[in-house]
Each structure stands twice: as C-alpha cells, then as structure tokens.
Design a binder for these strands. Structure first.
Lengths: 229, 229
DNA sequence: TAGCGTTATCTACCATGCAAGAGAGTTTAG
DNA sequence: CTAAACTCTCTTGCATGGTAGATAACGCTA
C-alpha cells in the first residue's frame, strides 16, 4: 500500500529526490534500532536528516498510516509494538494471502518463477544440512516472497508488504524458524507447494501453502511461548 | 489500518479535537464529490476547513498511504481511481478476507451476531420482494460487514476497511448488485453462509462465503462490462 | 500553419517561529 | 511522611513566507 507511487515505482525511474526520506525513516524504524515502544523525536530526526521538522512530521504521519508508529498527540511518536493478539492475527492473514498467491501461481503456471523456487529449495536444503541457520532463515523468507511475487498480484503484494513490515519487529521470532527439528519438515512442505504449483493444482497449492504457514506459525509460536512466557 | 488510534478509538473517548480533519478529508474523498482523477488543492482545502496548509498536507499524505489519493510532486494531489485490474484484484483479496471471517465466525460460534445476520437476511428478502433496490444494496453491504465484524478479528477488519475504502469509488458498481435476477440467488447464498456458521462448519462457511463473493463479483463484473465497455 | 522556444503562473515543498498541551519534577500544606 | 498543587521544560501543533519545479499559454520562427 505504501508503494502506490513512491517506494518501488519511483526507483525504476530514478527519481532520487522524490521521497527517499520516507523510505529512510521506514528502514530506520524497521531496523530495530529503536528498542520497542521507544520514542522517535521529530526534532532529533530533523537534525539527523538535516531537514526541517515539517517533512519529518509528514513522513511520520505516513508511517502511522502504515501501522508502524503510533503518534500520541502532544506527547510524542513511538515505535508501535504489535500485541500478542495482533501477531497471531497477522499470521492468520498472512496464511490466506500466501494461500491465494500460491493458488494464483498454480493457475497461471508461472514456469520461470518455478525454477527460482526450486533453486531456493535446493539452497535451503544445503543451508539446513550445513547448519547455516542464518542463511536458511533468509532463504525461507525469500521463498515466501517468491510465492507472493510470482502470483503477479499487485494488491496482494501491497497487503503482504504491509503485513510483513508490521511483523518485521518480530524478526527475532521468525529467525527461530531455523530450528534443527523444523528445518527438514519445512523444506518438505516447500517442495509440496512447488509440486502443486507445477501440477497446476490451484486448490492443492493454496491448501499446501496455508498448511505450511499455519504449521510453521504454530511451531514458532510454541517456541516463542516457551522462551519468554 | 488507518484507525490504529485515530478513527474509532478516539471516538469512544470523545476526543473531538484530536484528528477530525483526516476523517473529514477522507469522507470528502470517499463521498465522490470529486469526480474521478480530480485534483484536490491544498490551498482550497485549507480555506475550506479554515486551517493552514500544513495540517492539510499531513492528512493528504496519510490518505496517500491509505491509497485513496495520489500525490504527484510539484504538480498536485488527485483522487486515485483504481484501474480495472486493481478492482479485480481487490475483489480477489476481498474474497479470501471474507472467507476467513466467515470461517472464524463458524469456529467461534458467535450466537448474537448470528441473529443479526438472520435479521439482515429477512430484511433483505423483504426489500428484494418490494423491489427496493437501494435498501437491498445497503443491506447486502451490511451483511458482509456483519460477517467481518462478527469474526472479531482486528487485523482482518483493518485490511478489509482499507480495501472497501479503495473500492468505495465503485459504489455505483456495487449498487448494481441489486439486479432483479441476482437478488433471490444472493439471498440464498447468504442463507447458506449463515447455515454453515450456525453448524460451526468453519471450512464450509469459508467456502460458502468465497463462492458467494466470487459469484456476485462475476455477475457484477459482466454487468459492468456490458454497461461501459 | 506547424513546431519550437520562452515566459508566466500555478502547484507543492520546506524552513522558521510561535503557541499550547502534557508530563515530570519540585515545592508546600496537611 | 504523604499527597496535592504548582511550575518548568519538553513535546507536538499550526501558521506563514519564500523557493523551486512543472505545466500551460503565448509568441517567435521556419
């Protein structure tokens, strides 16, 4: 939603001075440099970016619309930390979005994207065998993103990006997907999804994808529950 | 997404001076007073609302993040008109969101909301028999909204609201759902959804809902295609 | 007459300054 | 010692003015 004309569209036209400030601010928030519900001061950001407070304010309002920060009037702006309930809900939405994406890919029969997916799976298996959990986690994210991108569905992509941005704060959680016992099963589920897509079985692909998401979410959830409460 | 702390949350606390401007501006855009890709001038709006251009600008940036307007740098702000492809895509996302909502309602077994749904269906049937297409269209919208609200799912509600806002410009299209031949079948589909929810058949409810959405979307689509191109 | 260069005006953009609310710290009364 | 009231400082909120870029109208030239 936030890239309606700014983020990605302008990059390809190389309009550098158009809106890099919003992107830089978003990255700053998503990077996790600001601990949790930490305050982000307009004045400090203005000094940081060598601009006046006005454009900073405008960008923060946009980030608020994206659900990344919370602006308390006359008090300050704070990095938004989704509640436990919200995280669960976001994974539920993530599930149906990715399910739709997989189904659409199967319906289209996107061959070149399929090869990318299989390369990704091969690399994932390699990383899993080598115990390279960091690379593995990155490849898993890439797999899901490839599914979404492969669906060639703009609105789906927008909603998905919004969701992932709001979930970005939980990168620490998602990195726990690189759990030793989980990895081989996850790879198998990825394979099943790709097989369904290759077979052009839209419904099968959708449900394989949804089952994969809900399974991994459950395991991550219990993992996280055991960890901090 | 846009009501993270503004729209609904502040209303119940009765903080009128907090952010009515964004809401008023949003309503102004959604009302359709501005034809299509019409320009909305900061200066004019500032005069209209008796404020300076600065808060107007901030609100417009938020509306841009919500996908309702498009800001062309150094040129102007225009009400965004979704392309045909985007409309189709939005209905696809609408389908899975409402499917998820119906499934969740079935899983929860929300009894009070079920009665509201059945009242709605009764009223819809009355309106259909009386040929009151305006009331009928309103009730259909209310039915879908009741499903979403009944799911008691915050994030789902946010994504759904974003979607419906962007689709609001096509109210003229959605009013064509009150087509004489379509109405009785639509009511029957509503009944089936409610029956599935009452039977606590989550999967059945989800697919009944999705089938209903995709069916009505197809009929509306062909209707609209016949109308203007 | 058609095409191009020029200018004039309209737009958003951003910097600055002032004002008002919220919150914390302090002081004072009980 | 506790609690309430007060003040002080920090924050955002908003108004205003100057600036730069984009667009369209106009005049010039071929």
């Amino acid at each position: 939603m936030q890239e309606s004309l700014g983020t990605a569209a302008s990059a390809e036209v190389l309009q550098l001075p158009v809106a890099p400030l919003l992107d830089r601010l978003r990255e700053l928030v998503l990077s996790g440099d600001y601990p949790a519900g930490a305050a982000v001061s307009e004045t400090l950001l203005a000094q940081e970016f060598n601009v006046s407070r006005t454009p900073i304010r405008e960008a923060l309002k946009q980030l608020q619309a994206e659900g990344l920060v919370e602006i308390r009037p006359k008090v300050g702006t704070f990095v938004r930390e989704p509640s436990r309930r919200e995280v669960v809900e976001m994974f539920q939405v993530k599930e149906i979005l990715e399910g739709l994406a997989a189904g659409l890919m199967a319906r289209r029969g996107a061959v070149p994207q399929l090869e990318l997916l299989e390369e990704n799976i091969e690399a994932s298996e390699m990383a899993a065998q080598n115990g390279d959990s960091e690379t593995y986690a990155r490849l898993v994210h890439e797999f899901h993103q490839l599914i979404v991108d492969g669906s060639d569905h703009l609105k789906l992509g927008e909603h998905y990006r919004t969701l992932m941005n709001q979930l970005a704060y939980h990168r620490l959680v998602t990195t726990s997907i690189a759990h030793p016992g989980r990895m081989p099963r996850s790879v198998a589920e990825h394979r099943k999804v790709v097989a369904m897509i290759r077979a052009k079985d839209a419904m099968g692909a959708e449900w394989a994808m949804r089952d994969h998401v809900v399974t991994s979410a459950r395991e991550v959830s219990t993992e996280h529950t055991n960890a901090d409460g």
